[in-house]
């Protein structure tokens, strides 16, 4: 079965990133296909590479990044939500005339249409939020 997962909360502040990550892993382990993971609202904060949690805590952004690499996942950060919250990839930072970018490997920035398309193409859409 084909799933699209939507993550609407940032890491650490809310459990939804942990829940979505565990769900996505389990879906893959059960042989399902993840068409796309779409990060919206504060969920875009799952895509920063500049987080440095304490050593004894989990590293959510890196775990998502590693999962994307391992399973070749399409993980999309909503551009409108990302711009509000200061999440930039290199090309977007350049376009905006900013001096830095902060997206971790495995995520890419794109439009909200990716969410709608994901839900059209998938058998199930599962929303994780607050």
């Amino acid at each position: 079965m084909i799933f699209t997962v939507m993550v609407n909360e940032g890491p650490y502040q809310h459990q939804s990133s942990d829940s979505a990550l565990a769900f996505t892993r389990a879906a893959l382990a059960e042989g399902h296909t993840i068409f796309r993971v779409f990060f919206y609202n504060d969920g875009v904060n799952n895509g920063t590479r500049l987080a440095v949690p304490p050593k004894d805590d989990r590293e959510l952004q890196k775990e998502w990044s590693a999962l994307a690499k391992e399973h070749d996942l399409d993980m999309v950060i909503c551009i409108a939500a990302a711009q509000r919250r200061g999440l930039m990839d290199a090309s977007e930072a350049e376009r905006q005339g900013l001096d830095a970018n902060n997206i971790i490997d495995g995520f890419h920035i794109s439009g909200l249409g990716q969410l709608i398309e994901g839900s059209i193409q998938s058998d199930r859409t599962v929303v994780f939020g607050d």
């Binding site: 609202n41 409108a80 939500a81 909200l112 709608i116 839900s119």
Partner: peptide
């Protein structure tokens, strides 16, 4: 597609950003 809105506007960003999804979805 059903957009379920259960929160007041302004206190959180959900209403505004839900509306942004709705407007994009219209093109599909």
């Amino acid at each position: 597609f059903m957009y379920v809105n259960r929160k007041a506007p302004y206190g959180t960003v959900y209403a505004l950003e839900a509306l942004e999804v709705v407007l994009i979805a219209a093109a599909f």
